[in-house]
Nucleic acid binder design. Structure first.
Length: 885
DNA sequence: CGACTCACG
DNA sequence: ACGTACGTGAGTCGT
């Protein structure tokens, strides 16, 4: 017996129509960048996915209506007359539907003079004869007349996903007649939407009764005498011709002169490249993502690749790579400081070598290639690769292209860490994502199957090579060559060195703090329970709200999505009303320090060297800053004394050494003074004034001899922050607890006093609206797709971002330049750079080198770039990070 | 896994 | 009129 054949027949026009109206309310949000409406295409494709999944067809055809003129209109001029014209928003989508189908490997067909129904009826009949199992998908219930044992009809009901499937049994159950009797019913009752009348006075009920009794229209007329109802009998006699004609119109043809055969309908499956291009043209991000995440069918779209397994005995093949190669080291776990090694791929063009055995990398042949400056290496994530190889005793050098870094610079939004996903976004589709190949969550694992694993590794190598030239080209177009080559690429190595160095943790000290805080927490908790009159989970905002706002009757100040807020600013306002609130604040603070810092830090100390080795994420933030994970060393407490004590646990890694720290003073406001050219702001820095006090003088319009009160300075400081963040009166009013009107007044005065700043804010937003992005002083770019959004909130957010990003981002540029120069400046010293916290650098050094560092470090930092105002750097040092204040 | 809270610049 | 300050990471709760 032959393999089972399953045919999917789709009524193109009716499904498109359904899709269009199902998504009609979102018509305007479904447009691509050319202004084409895409809701019907989108809905059609969703429906298609559902049907393909359900039917798993071997063959498929989408039939379309050829035009208004058909054999039916020739017989009966009014057929489908009076119908509203197809809306242009739908018609414009029809050609693209054909394109979609082609990309999805499905034939489409239309036949002059016939409707899609007739094509489907004829094909379904052919298929029945040939032993196919057929499913017809339509939005039109009339097609249920085609149901049979071998053919079922799926009718789209409401929305995009709901479908009702008809079998002959279901038809009888639902309509009371057999499928082939549907045309008899329609003959009698007519069809208003197709505009043919049937018999006057006969509706669905009567029609079904008559046909149940007499089987067919012919049967009805054969037994006219049996019909007692006089009126109905008269109507039947009167409209006899109409009845037969209506039945004829309702009858789907099963002998249409098709030019295509059943054997032409093979379902080819998705044409990967074509489909991706189409989705991109339509801006269908969700389908693109789905393609990326799906595992089965899409693999078929990949062209085969060739690789050779590298072994100890064929290492001499590597001599061919005397100029360049792509290299990829697979470390399956996220944390590359500790991850296992799963394998690697290296090669170029048609020559790819793979292995699971990373010891091969340590052989002279491979090691030489990786360490050579003469052989260019192209990689994905140079920092990860560098640290991984370093663990194997290999010093990676000669790196030319990093796909991850380049991609991040081109568009910070496309910052997936998954090579396959990223390649996909850049238009390279001959690769799957790691999630597809390795799985996700608990099921994630490196495949045991060599073919699958090695093929994926090879594809990674090829993707790196293929994207090198287009991405380099784009960097050049964006004027980001320098940024890439002289900032981010060297930065990766500097960061790798800092991560590898790590910072020493005094675990005994942390353990002592742990006991101390445990005791304190237990006491505070008891007090709180007594004050509350019951035990509850203080860490649960829900239970806490219950105690505070219901049991104790305090007044809620702020709401969250799920209830009343219990955040610090709320509790601080409530504190005078009940002593419990103060204790809760204390408890929260200590609990945070205990779990996140004391216990959190202890968990990530490497037992081998008593150090923590953070990972700096170089390609994550939208502004160009770094971020730090596992552990995050950029948010170690400092603002409260209890928290600050955590810093006592960060110590030098050698006896007699010190922790040394230098930070930029007011770097963001200095950057602001530079890029706005504001003379008044610049003057304050050139004269080395206290910037917040100076701002206070101006916004409070103080006379030269008047005193700036601490409160004025505090408010001015908030205004300065507000300016950097992209000011709004509301935000400022919230921050310093004044009315919106007062905040507005502050801002207006500020802009009068600093006209250059005002001008900049106006210009940068206008430029962002025009170009779609903003830039830092080093040409780091951030796209702002919402800058022209209709939605006020989205647009406002983008506008504030436009104001803030060049400031925050340029400050990030500056410290990065300083760090790169720093490594070189320190090369003859024992001092080591350990940490970066956005505007400060932390080192460890022998006590004897401290005098040198006190001169050297600030000079490197303040001369990193030449701005219109000076940069200022302050330094501190001590036995621990805590003491370096 | 999202919401909330809170640590940093 | 709209309703938020900019950029991060991590722990805990509760569905």
């Amino acid at each position: 017996m032959a393999e089972s054949k399953r045919l999917l027949l789709i009524d193109g026009n009716s499904v498109a129509f359904r899709a269009f109206y199902a998504l009609y309310t979102s018509l305007n949000s479904f447009t691509n960048s050319d202004g084409l409406h895409t809701n019907a295409i989108f809905g059609f494709n969703r429906m298609l996915d559902i049907m393909l999944e359900q039917v798993k067809p071997t063959d498929a055809l989408v039939a379309f209506d050829a035009g208004k003129v058909t054999f039916r209109t020739k017989k009966y001029a009014d057929y489908k007359g009076g119908r509203a014209k197809t809306p242009p928003e739908l018609s414009e989508q029809m050609p693209y539907l054909r394109k979609l189908l082609q990309a999805r490997g499905i034939k489409s067909y239309e036949l002059p003079n016939y409707e899609a129904d007739d094509i489907i009826g004829t094909m379904a009949k052919e298929a029945e004869k040939a032993g196919y199992e057929t499913t017809i998908f339509t939005g039109d219930r009339d097609l249920t007349q085609l149901t049979s044992d071998a053919t079922s009809v799926a009718v789209s009901k409401k929305g995009v996903t709901e479908v009702e499937t008809y079998t002959p049994e279901h038809v009888e159950e639902k309509l009371g007649v057999r499928p082939n009797q549907i045309i008899e019913i329609k003959g009698l009752q007519g069809d208003t939407s197709d505009n043919y009348p049937g018999v006057a006075g006969v509706g669905p009920k009567t029609a079904v009764n008559l046909i149940q009794k007499y089987d067919t229209i012919d049967g009805v007329y054969d037994h006219l005498d049996d019909i007692s109802a006089k009126k109905m009998k008269a109507h039947l006699i009167e409209d006899k011709d109409s009845a037969f004609q209506s039945r004829d119109l309702a009858t789907i043809r099963r002998d249409a002169p098709l030019e295509i055969k059943l054997s032409d309908l093979k379902y080819e499956g998705d044409q990967r490249d074509e489909l991706v291009a189409f989705y991109q043209e339509m801006n269908f991000q969700s389908f693109l993502n789905k393609m990326n995440a799906d595992s089965d069918d899409d693999v078929l779209g990949l062209k085969p690749v060739h690789f050779t397994v590298l072994t100890q005995s064929n290492l001499d093949v590597l001599s061919q790579f005397d100029d360049h190669l792509s290299f990829y080291l697979e470390m399956p776990e996220e944390n590359y400081h500790t991850s296992t090694f799963a394998g690697f791929a290296l090669g170029k063009d048609q020559q790819w070598y793979v292995s699971r055995d990373v010891e091969l990398l340590q052989t002279q042949q491979v090691k030489h290639l990786l360490e050579s400056d003469e052989v260019q290496k192209d990689v994905f994530d140079v920092k990860r690769t560098y640290v991984g190889l370093n663990r194997l005793g290999i010093k990676l050098s000669g790196v030319d292209f990093d796909l991850l870094l380049a991609s991040y610079l081109l568009d910070t939004n496309e910052n997936s860490n998954d090579l396959g996903r990223l390649a996909f976004q850049h238009g390279y589709h001959q690769i799957q994502s790691d999630e597809e190949v390795y799985g996700k969550g608990a099921k994630r694992s490196i495949p045991n199957d060599d073919q699958i694993f090695f093929e994926h590794l090879t594809r990674k190598g090829i993707a790196i090579q293929s994207l090198k030239s287009p991405l380099f080209k784009q960097l050049k177009v964006n004027e980001q060559n320098d940024l890439y080559r002289n900032m981010e690429l060297p930065m990766a190595f500097v960061l790798a060195h800092m991560e590898i160095a790590g910072i020493m943790v005094d675990t005994d000290r942390l353990t002592a703090m742990q006991s101390e805080f445990t005791e304190l927490l237990a006491q505070t908790q008891q007090t709180i329970f007594q004050e509350a009159g019951e035990d509850f989970n203080i860490g649960s905002p829900k239970q806490l709200s219950h105690i505070l706002f219901e049991k104790l009757g305090l007044t809620p100040i702020k709401k969250t999505k799920t209830g009343y807020s219990t955040s610090v600013d709320v509790l601080e306002k409530l504190a005078p009303e009940a002593p419990i609130v103060e204790n809760i604040l204390k408890y929260r603070q200590i609990a945070k320090i205990q779990s996140t810092y004391v216990e959190g830090l202890l968990k990530v100390v490497h037992s081998t060297d008593q150090k923590v080795h953070t990972r700096y994420l170089q390609t994550l933030t939208q502004t160009g800053r770094l971020s730090s994970v596992d552990p995050n060393l950029q948010n170690i407490p400092i603002r409260t004394e209890e928290g600050r004590r955590i810093r006592q646990a960060f110590i030098p890694s050698h006896n007699g050494w010190q922790i040394f720290s230098s930070d930029y003073s007011q770097i963001e406001l200095r950057v602001l003074a530079h890029i706005t050219h504001d003379k008044n702001l610049q003057a304050a820095f050139i004269n080395n004034e206290d910037i917040h006090a100076s701002t206070a003088r101006r916004i409070f319009r103080l006379s030269p001899d008047a005193e700036v009160t601490p409160n004025m300075r505090r408010q001015a400081k908030a205004v300065n922050f507000g300016i950097v963040y992209g000011i709004s009166d509301y935000g400022l009013s919230q921050n310093i607890g004044i009315t919106r009107k007062q905040a507005r007044q502050f801002i207006d005065t500020y802009f009068q006093e600093f006209p250059g700043v005002k001008q900049y804010m106006t210009d940068i937003v206008a430029s962002a609206k025009d170009k779609g992005y903003v830039e830092t002083i080093a040409h780091r770019r951030r796209y702002l797709p919402d800058i022209n959004a209709r939605n006020f909130n989205q647009r406002s957010f983008a506008e504030r971002t436009a104001m803030n990003t060049p400031i925050q981002g340029s400050a990030a540029d500056i410290i990065k330049i300083a760090m790169i120069q720093m490594e070189d400046a320190l090369k003859d010293l024992q001092a080591t750079m350990l940490l970066q916290v956005h505007d400060e650098l932390i080192f460890e050094a022998p006590a004897s080198e401290i005098p040198t560092l006190e001169k050297l470090v600030p000079s490197v930092m303040d001369s990193a770039v030449k701005l219109e105002i000076p940069l200022k750097v302050e330094s501190h040092y001590g036995d621990t990070w805590y003491e370096a204040k």
